[in-house]
Write a protein that binds this DNA or RNA. Structure first.
Lengths: 343, 343
DNA sequence: TGACGATCTGAACACGTGAACAAGAATCGG
DNA sequence: CCGATTCTTGTTCACGTGTTCAGATCGTCA
């Protein structure tokens, strides 16, 4: 009698139980569930019935243990209070769940020790890949992922390496559309509020902004540019600084929606009407932009497409782990709402 | 030679490898890692050194498989686009990670078939408990969790049952503080925008609002009450409806921050100044309320405390799975910002 | 009829872990 | 100095899975 020793499990059923009921071996049950190998239709039907009858729920830990795959993908986010990330997470999760996978979430500053801890968590759980939503980070922190051959996808880093792909956002077209839109409205003095000084993503967007201005035949004026921090406070004080200018811009583009929110708040406090006195353009296309008075015109990225590209990139890295991952590009488009109007 | 058959794993190390290097058995390694049982300091040191030297990363799937525990807690959220939930998630995750646990996320309408699917996912991954952020749902959907003896915590359902606890939010004090605050500012006609018709949480908050009014000696006027949908659109149209009244309220409380955002947007569009012409009170205390012009006065709940209480409830349910879970209460407090002013 | 290929099914195996049990070593009281 | 107790370590076991390999069944064609 080993009943006294057996641990109190809540799950009495396994493939063997199902197999017994269906009169087959557990290997056949596995084949039916996973659709691998050939099984007679009649046999498969018997197995499915047994599964239903027992309410059998498979246990992926067996597979994870034996074969090191978990059907879990890691997602490392810098900040859940920025609505961009939850909205991405939502789409990412939806895409994963559709294929019986799970998300493992880590919200972490990309500074060295914290990121390293998150990476370790991912390795412990044997994730099948990691999406790292950061363009700047300490490379040593992800070294363990590479050495354990875990596929990596970074976002907007615009660098690719062995075992790691990148999904870049094509801000160029978005900022160009915004520039065309503003020029058509009569704007000539267009300012910009960037992200944190020195970060690649910030530079990329500023560059995209500059190029867009030139492409529509407007001059880029360095005096109308401020740096923020990707967050509300940065956008707010940057806008205050722009308002202090003797010759203010008539329109301001920003590096992301949070920055634009901060700018809008500063304008509200200064009793400057948007879009009557100044136009604002955000970047992210987050849903809250639709509500934030007077509705934020924003350069939007399709979260759904981004999720799909991330997963595609992970798969293609996995398929060819020994070579450089692909560099995919997600387009951006201007969504026009209430915060832009005639100059 | 079984080397030809062995699957290509990325993790060559296990407790046995560590044990060999440290000159002990793998059981001792386990004892050192988990701190269970007594180990000579010198031995423990040798083991720790071996772990470090090999870069050993434990594999929880072994434990999950053998003992059915995963160190993973499920979290079922209705909506990630409502900033309340990501902010809670952030705190919940932080609390879990501190104890080597993980979150398993499911964003799901609480309608029957979707919720049932999420529950199944949780069961597959052998979660140690589930936090279900919903007060209303099809009870049959969580039946599998109960029968598998998985601890459950619901939020603001105010019902407890065998194997399930509840963490309720004490809105009463929050709405009372808001009522006191508004009365002191001279408001007498105070309106309310609720959540979706018929939901318990919505009723609870409306009731709390009514009681608060009475407690400060003001009359509750049904004509100043509208129902929303917990989202922006509901708040927006509800406010538009209130504005159409011949005798408008001078202040309006809402069921949550998103509803208040919608109300603020409606007021902005109607060119009605907040708080000069009307005061608005939200409920959630989400960070974005601080930015949303002119800054949203809101009834805030401590996410950190809520996370802690949820985990505490889960543990106490697990410890006594055969009896009703506890009913905990989280306090709420008024955070005063720019959206409330003199009547 | 016999041989052969195609199709389907079963047996065996290892993955890493924590706990139960047992055994050896050390300590202590008498 | 011996028996009893405490402390420390080792041995053994099972958890559920997907895959590999071999065996069984069946139909087909020479």
């Amino acid at each position: 009698m080993n009943t006294t020793k057996a641990p109190q499990h809540q799950f009495a059923q396994n493939m063997k139980t199902v197999a017994r009921l269906a009169g087959v071996s557990h290997a056949t049950v596995s084949r039916v569930i996973n659709g691998t190998g050939l099984v007679l239709p009649a046999t498969a039907e018997r197995v499915r019935k047994a599964i239903e009858q027992l309410g059998f729920i498979p246990n992926p830990s067996g597979t994870t243990l034996r074969y090191g795959r978990s059907k879990v993908f890691g997602l490392i986010l810098p900040d859940l209070t920025n609505p961009f990330y939850p909205e991405f997470l939502l789409n990412f999760e939806r895409a994963l769940v559709a294929t019986e996978h799970e998300v493992m979430l880590a919200t972490t500053q990309v500074s060295s020790p914290e990121l390293a801890r998150s990476v370790r968590r991912m390795l412990m759980r044997r994730v099948d890949g990691v999406v790292l939503m950061a363009s700047e980070f300490d490379t040593r922190s992800i070294e363990p992922l590479l050495s354990h051959r875990v596929p990596i996808v970074t976002i907007d880093r615009r660098i690719t390496q062995k075992g790691a792909a990148d999904v870049a956002i094509d801000f160029e077209t978005g900022y160009l559309q915004a520039a065309i839109h503003l020029k058509k409205l009569g704007h000539r003095r267009i300012g910009f509020i960037g992200g944190s000084e020195g970060l690649v993503t910030s530079k990329v967007r500023l560059k995209a902004f500059q190029t867009a201005l030139e492409d529509v035949g407007l001059n880029y004026d360095e005096k109308l540019t401020r740096m923020g921090d990707y967050r509300v406070t940065g956008g707010r004080s940057a806008m205050q600084s722009l308002l202090a200018l003797r010759k203010r811009p008539t329109a301001v583009m920003t590096v992301n929606d949070l920055t634009a929110f901060g700018a809008l708040r500063a304008l509200h406090d200064a009793k400057i009407s948007v879009p009557d006195e100044i136009s604002i353009v955000g970047c992210d296309g987050s849903l809250l932009g639709e509500v934030f008075p007077p509705g934020l015109t924003s350069i939007a990225v399709s979260f759904e497409e981004m999720s799909r590209k991330c997963l595609g990139a992970l798969h293609s890295v996995k398929a060819n782990i020994e070579s450089k991952g692909p560099l995919l590009v997600v387009p951006s488009t201007l969504v026009i709402r209430g915060s832009t109007g005639p100059a």
